[in-house]
């Protein structure tokens, strides 16, 4: 008898299908962005590939109607789950005027969209963590029932803002969930040369909160961990740290050549655990996904991506003088 893990977590087949669809949309969008970059149509791409399960699994465990998220640059899965569209992400990749993240001001991956409670991010890493703590503080002060959710890479867990922010959240028992997406590399530097503790989750103990390490290739495991963290936060029991371990399947960015610091066989080995494959297998085993359904799903997603690409490519840039606007309130 096959184990039906998602039902045990209270997830319906439809919700699991929706999770997979979001993961696959993130993956296929990301792949398209690399193609667009390699064909000279967009100057830069930075990838979510290998981290979709953690991003989408976590997002589905949150309240996507009221929680706030402070994503980092790989979190295409998070922002899609929180309501950003493929079109909007493509507008960002093409740096077009209607990009809701920044109107073409920031590089792709610098997410932000107030209407979906996605906090605006920058390039210096981990600065978003104290912001998420501040949003949680504000929510607590105003007696609201949302939580804030912030993500970062394992290399970013070395930054002062990680430690200052988690300590602040721990002291004030704030409803903030921090998820470190440990993809094993901070650009070229492997985990062992980045972090002295055995795992990132161990760092939680110093800040008076639980820390757990979960399989970041398993969206259901991440879902469960974030669900529990959210329940604790909502109950007034304070913050949590979750480390989702997966693997970065692409180079750091479109400007990086990862063959200078890691072997092909290592990447190939990691691909065997790719959540897009393993989760699809699980869904086949539980009769949620069939070959016919998968083909329909891929066709639908490719249609969305083709339309988004054409739309964004043909959309106008901001006027040059628009660069002068919004330094201050106008």
């Amino acid at each position: 008898m096959l184990e039906n893990r998602h039902r045990e977590l209270g997830l319906s087949d439809e919700e699991v299908m929706e999770m997979f669809k979001t993961m696959l949309l993130a993956r296929k969008l990301d792949e398209r962005m690399w193609l667009l970059n390699r064909s000279g149509k967009i100057p830069f791409a930075i990838s979510c590939q290998g981290q979709e399960a953690a991003q989408v699994g976590a997002s589905f465990a949150l309240n996507r109607e009221k929680d706030y998220v402070a994503p980092y640059y790989r979190d295409m899965g998070v922002v899609l789950a929180f309501g950003m569209t493929a079109k909007e992400l493509m507008l960002s990749s093409f740096a077009k005027a209607d990009d809701p993240n920044s109107g073409g001001r920031q590089m792709p991956g610098h997410f932000g969209q107030k209407k979906n409670r996605i906090l605006s991010g920058s390039s210096p890493v981990t600065t978003q963590l104290p912001h998420a703590v501040g949003v949680a503080l504000a929510g607590k002060m105003e007696k609201k029932d949302f939580v804030s959710f912030v993500t970062l890479g394992e290399g970013s867990s070395n930054q002062g803002d990680f430690h200052e922010g988690l300590n602040f959240a721990g002291v004030y028992k704030l409803p903030v969930i921090t998820m470190v997406e440990n993809n094993k590399y901070a650009i070229s530097i492997p985990y062992e040369r980045q972090v002295a503790s055995k795992n990132v989750a161990d760092r939680a103990e110093s800040y008076g909160m639980p820390g757990v390490t979960v399989d970041g290739n398993d969206p259901l495991a991440v879902y469960q961990a974030v669900k529990e963290a959210r329940a604790r936060a909502a109950a007034g029991d304070g913050p949590s740290l979750i480390e989702a371990v997966s693997y970065r399947l692409t180079p750091h960015s479109s400007d990086d050549d990862d063959s200078t610091y890691r072997g092909k066989s290592e990447v190939e080995e990691a691909r065997k655990k790719d959540s897009i494959i393993t989760f699809a297998n699980y869904m086949r085993e539980t009769n949620i996904l069939t070959d016919d359904k998968e083909k329909l799903l891929v066709d639908e997603i490719m249609g969305i991506i083709n339309e988004a690409t054409d739309f964004a490519e043909n959309a106008p840039y901001a006027e040059a003088e628009h660069a002068l606007k919004y330094v201050y309130e106008e």
Partner: peptide, 20 residues
């Protein structure tokens, strides 16, 4: 607050983004 100036500024910025 804890003795940590980046958190004082950063947490404040987050609260300000929320609307406080």
């Amino acid at each position: 607050t804890p003795l940590a100036e980046s958190a004082i500024a950063g947490v404040g910025i987050g609260a300000a983004m929320y609307g406080l």
